Amino acid sequence: MLAAVLLSPPAYLAAVALAHEQPVLRADAIAGQAGPWRFAIAEADRRVPRILLGDFPTKSYQIRFCDTCDDQIRAAYLKVNKPRSLRGAGLVFGSDRWNRSVEIQLPNSTGPDSEIWLTVEGKDGSLHHAAFPIRQISPATADWLQHRRQEP
């Protein structure tokens, strides 16, 4: 019993020290603006994409809009390559506020020079876009895509 009481504070402090840092707060997060709304976006982890059944690579991202902007946003979507319409804007970021996250599929046509497109829909119905080179937002993914292209 005494051992459990004595070990609890060090165990708690170790858990706090190892707590996962929010991706949008890391130094590699990209600060940007879509229309009037400022945001920070980052890949959830810096590793290469996860491969799902059927050889589909996926990558997770997180976004956070500025505190005053967040109430004005209905939804945010992310996809590889420029969307043609709102119906094709990509997958919607989960959560209605603060740190929103999404996991997108990287189509077979995705290359190291492709772009990730963010579409933000305001509560007023307006749509705004921002694009990021994969090499900027996910360097390890760009290298992985380059290597994958060179394989026979």
Rank of each mutant, 00 (worst) to 15 (best):
L2S: 02
A3Y: 07
A3G: 01
V5W: 05
L6H: 02
L6D: 02
P9W: 14
P10M: 12
V16T: 09
A19Q: 13
Q22K: 02
P23Q: 09
A27C: 00
D28R: 15
G32Q: 04
G32P: 15
G32E: 11
Q33I: 00
Q33C: 10
Q33E: 04
A34N: 10
G35H: 05
W37I: 06
W37K: 09
I41P: 13
A42M: 01
A42V: 10
A44M: 08
A44Y: 11
R46C: 02
R50V: 00
R50M: 03
I51H: 08
L52G: 03
Q62D: 13
Q62H: 09
F65P: 13
T68V: 06
D71A: 01
I73L: 01
I73K: 01
A76H: 02
A76F: 05
Y77K: 01
P83V: 13
R84M: 06
R84N: 15
S85Q: 15
R87D: 15
G88E: 09
G88L: 12
A89V: 10
G90N: 12
L91K: 13
V92S: 09
D96H: 10
N99L: 11
R100N: 03
R100T: 06
V102T: 06
L106A: 03
P112R: 11
E115N: 07
I116V: 15
I116R: 13
T119C: 13
E121I: 01
E121A: 07
G122K: 04
D124Q: 02
S126D: 11
L127C: 06
A130C: 08
A131R: 08
R135Y: 00
R135G: 08
S138K: 05
T141E: 03
T141K: 06
A142F: 04
A142L: 12
D143S: 03
D143Q: 02
D143N: 06
D143I: 12
W144K: 03
W144H: 01
L145R: 05
Q146D: 15
R148S: 07
Q150H: 02
E151N: 08
